[in-house]
Design a protein around this nucleic acid. Structure first.
Lengths: 100, 100
DNA sequence: CGTGTAAGGAATTCTGACACG
DNA sequence: CGTGTAAGGAATTCTGACACG
């Protein structure tokens, strides 16, 4: 779960190779709050596979002309939907254990 | 399967942080044929999470005084066992489909 | 707003080699 | 055999800024 997919171990050069996005773009999307890489001791950015997927998602939307501001909005909305889903599931489970 | 765990995307500096092995040691174990990192266009080594697990395994054995030569032997033996297992399984499946 | 680029500096990585043992 | 280290060079990464639009 918290394993490979979310471990921040990939440098920005590799992310560039993997996503095709320029280093400049990758840094800019961070500035916009779309991704949050970790940092090495020396300050080098480190990304996860999950970050890479997010970036490819961003790239698609950018190609359609969606602004970073909008993309961020979409991402938050998606996250909230996920949260609601989880709460409903929790409710279901609760109901199950308390049924009689 | 061929996804995150085996994708070669991690630079040697990060591998050093993750395993505690010195850069020199990591390169040396490659020289001995214990690991096979990819290379970027510029020649930089790239490792996978799988490689990192292998390296931690190597580190343990080295602490016990096992020589790299031996470690390689152990790794090949293990690989063969795995192969035999897979062949047996294939045999079982065959038998199943051809039973009457 | 989103991205390119030149600038200057710091840290990384690479290879082949010598050292010790 | 296994690992440290100094050597010299090439490529990466970082930040803040100017440019265009």
């Amino acid at each position: 779960m918290t394993s490979y997919k979310h471990k921040k171990v990939i440098t920005i050069g590799i992310v560039n190779e993997l996503t095709g996005l320029s280093v400049r773009q990758i840094r800019y999307y961070e500035e916009c709050g779309l991704i949050y890489p970790d940092r090495s001791k020396n300050g080098t950015r480190k990304y996860s596979f999950s970050d890479i997927e997010t970036l490819m998602n961003i790239a698609e939307q950018r190609e359609e002309g969606v602004q970073t501001r909008e993309i961020k909005h979409n991402m938050l909305k998606k996250k909230n939907k996920q949260k609601v889903k989880e709460e409903m599931l929790r409710g279901q489970i609760n109901a199950h254990f308390h049924q009689r």
